[in-house]
Computed example of a mutant assay.
Amino acid sequence: MEHCERKHALLSASSAGRWLACTPSARLEEQFPDTESEAAAEGTLAHELAEAKVRNFFFTKEFGKRKLNGAIKKLQANELWRDEMQGYTDDYLDYIKNIALSLKAAPSARIEQRVYFKEYTLADPEDEIDGSGIADCILLYGDTVHVIDFKYGKGVPVSAEKNPQLMLYALGAYMAYRMLYPISRAKLTIVQPRLDSLSEWECTAEELLEFGEYVKERAAFAVKGEGDFRPDKDTCRFCRAKAQCRARAEENIRLAFFTDKYPPLISNEEVGEYLKKGEDVAKWLEDLKEYALKECLAGKEVSGWKAVEGRGSREWTDMDAAFDILVKAGITPEDMLWEKKPLTLAQVEKMIGKKDFQESVGEFVIKKPGKPTLVKESDKRQAVTNKVTAAEAFAIGNQQ
């Protein structure tokens, strides 16, 4: 199944950590488009590569070497492809191989398997997507259902212990296969190779069903958009409403500016507590600035703020030609290399001086515009916007 075609349900397994803790967030997020970042798109590509390798391992007859190589070649044509993906997905495959080969009998494998937990999320039984999720890899052996999740992110390590996403996958797998296999325990694993992180956790089938009842209670609030908002750095991290959420704004304003303690000096214990409480404040301000910048670039007003061109950068138009001139001027190639890498444009300029730099190789340098950044309205730089003016629109119309 094409990963990019996945539709996200209202109460999806991937966002369970959020809507279980902050039940109103599920409906609140519906007001915002479900866009994909470049990092997420890169992760999707890595997942497709990982899926192909695992499928080749378990189903060699149906998905042999030729099909695997064809799939990899297709993925390599993607502009987000990075050769390092091969090694990281091999790490994921190696974990699965080690598990499978350590068993007395070959496990039953389900790759990119959709599992259903509709009765616990109160989803519409007729909806194919809602109340379901796609597990990267499910292994069934002995009395165990083993859910293995591949995460390509390199932000923070994700723990498998009581992980809501994986527990829902395991619950769905248990419901689907309990008549075929004597499942009495679930094992959850998260393989996060870019952080060299491997997390495993186990629970009984009874604990899994108890978790299902808890999900059902929370889902009853979430589907109606009811319950209490619970802003928190982990809960809010991937919420689409995080920049404009009033509950998060009020909580961070409270954390940042209000306290009932006014000692002359604070202790290390208090320092730790304040840092913990204020951990989301800086991130919230970043999210707020990102949202405000997008609004300004769209030509909308954000009181007291505007978008301007940030600091630009310079690049060589022809680095080899520029270096040839520098070598002829007496600079040795060894002087321009560091760890077998050419010196940056700024480093070369510092070495020979701005004046000589400009006179000798200045023609090979082009300055690129800086990335838009948000500043106060009092900043003297000219405002920039992506909004098309009437004159520009008229000009474009005449060209067509």
Score class of each variant (00 low, 15 high):
K7R: 15
S12N: 03
A13F: 15
R18S: 10
L20R: 01
L20N: 00
F32Y: 15
F32K: 11
P33V: 03
S37I: 08
L45E: 03
K53V: 03
V54P: 08
R66I: 07
K67I: 03
L68S: 09
A71E: 12
I72D: 08
R82A: 14
R82Q: 13
D91C: 11
Y95C: 10
N98G: 13
A100V: 10
S102F: 02
K104I: 11
A106V: 08
D124N: 14
D127H: 02
E128F: 14
D130I: 07
I134N: 05
A135K: 03
A135L: 12
Y141D: 14
Y141S: 14
Y141K: 06
D143Y: 09
D149L: 05
Y152L: 04
Y152G: 09
Q165M: 02
Y169D: 09
M175T: 02
M179N: 12
L180R: 03
W201N: 09
E202R: 07
E202Y: 00
A222P: 06
G225Q: 06
D228A: 11
K233V: 03
K242R: 15
A243V: 15
Q244L: 15
C245A: 04
R246G: 01
R254Y: 00
V271G: 04
Y274T: 01
K277D: 11
K277C: 08
G278W: 03
G278C: 13
Y291Q: 07
L293P: 11
E295S: 02
C296N: 08
V302Y: 05
K306N: 10
S313G: 04
R314M: 14
R314T: 14
R314H: 07
M319W: 02
F323W: 15
V327Q: 09
V327W: 06
K328I: 11
W338P: 00
K341H: 07
G362R: 00
I366Y: 05
T373M: 12
E377V: 05
D379Q: 03
Q382L: 08
T385P: 07
A391I: 01
A391K: 06
F394H: 03
